[in-house]
Simulated assay, not measured.
Amino acid sequence: MKALSLLQPWASLIAIGAKKIETRSWATKYRGPLAIHASAKFGKHEKATCGLPGFKQTLIVHRLMRESKTQYGLYFYEMPLGSIIAICNLVDVIPVEDISGLTTKERAFGDYSPGRYAWVLEDVRPLDKPVPAKGKLGLWEWAGDAG
């Protein structure tokens, strides 16, 4: 099965159905089943993104992030890393300039800069348990079982 690696929180946003379009700088002719892989990296930029409007409330509601009750307001992240976390269908890839009617959250969850591509995802099915896997750049073949 083809797989696509994404950084957190974007991989989990797809897995929970909050993000239905993945934006990329490149297109593909591939259409069909796609495994969503959460990359092992979860750096400062990605953690800062989790605190942005739309991200924070969505991640907390879905128990992917929680705020501590300390004076420092620390966050604890519950997002899987280095694993396949969902299976979906890639149904279309279109230039972002051809997209209309995006919700505010969908627009916030992607990079809709001119020249990029919108990968339209449907039938997202989160896995009951993340399946450890080493990701790769681009579309790659995952030989695992989504059971």
Score class of each variant (00 low, 15 high):
15 A>K: 00
16 I>A: 01
19 K>A: 12
19 K>G: 13
20 K>W: 08
20 K>P: 00
21 I>Y: 00
21 I>D: 00
22 E>I: 13
23 T>P: 14
23 T>V: 14
24 R>F: 11
24 R>E: 11
24 R>T: 13
26 W>A: 06
26 W>R: 07
26 W>H: 06
27 A>H: 06
29 K>W: 02
29 K>C: 07
29 K>Q: 13
29 K>R: 11
29 K>V: 10
31 R>Q: 02
32 G>A: 02
33 P>S: 05
37 H>T: 04
39 S>T: 09
40 A>K: 11
41 K>F: 13
41 K>C: 13
42 F>I: 06
42 F>E: 02
43 G>T: 07
44 K>I: 12
44 K>D: 08
45 H>F: 01
45 H>S: 03
48 A>Y: 02
48 A>R: 02
48 A>L: 11
49 T>H: 00
51 G>Q: 10
55 F>I: 03
57 Q>M: 01
57 Q>L: 05
58 T>L: 04
59 L>Q: 06
59 L>V: 14
60 I>C: 07
61 V>F: 09
62 H>R: 03
64 L>Q: 03
65 M>E: 14
65 M>L: 15
65 M>D: 11
66 R>A: 13
66 R>G: 00
66 R>P: 08
66 R>W: 09
66 R>F: 10
67 E>R: 10
68 S>E: 12
68 S>H: 09
69 K>A: 14
69 K>S: 12
72 Y>T: 10
73 G>N: 13
75 Y>P: 04
75 Y>R: 07
77 Y>E: 07
78 E>F: 03
78 E>C: 00
79 M>G: 05
80 P>E: 01
80 P>H: 05
82 G>T: 09
82 G>V: 14
84 I>W: 01
86 A>V: 04
86 A>C: 07
86 A>K: 00
86 A>L: 04
89 N>V: 12
90 L>H: 03
90 L>D: 08
92 D>K: 05
93 V>C: 13
93 V>I: 13
93 V>R: 01
98 D>H: 04
99 I>E: 13
99 I>R: 07
99 I>V: 15
101 G>R: 02
102 L>H: 10
102 L>S: 11
102 L>K: 10
102 L>R: 09
103 T>C: 14
103 T>D: 10
103 T>Q: 05
103 T>Y: 02
104 T>N: 11
105 K>S: 15
106 E>S: 07
106 E>K: 05
108 A>V: 09
108 A>S: 15
108 A>W: 02
111 D>S: 11
114 P>M: 06
114 P>D: 08
115 G>S: 08
116 R>K: 08
116 R>F: 03
116 R>S: 02
119 W>E: 06
120 V>W: 03
120 V>C: 06
121 L>R: 06
122 E>I: 12
123 D>A: 11
125 R>A: 08
126 P>F: 07
126 P>M: 10
126 P>W: 04
127 L>C: 01
127 L>F: 03
128 D>R: 06
129 K>V: 15
129 K>G: 00
130 P>E: 01
133 A>W: 00
133 A>D: 03
134 K>F: 05
134 K>E: 11
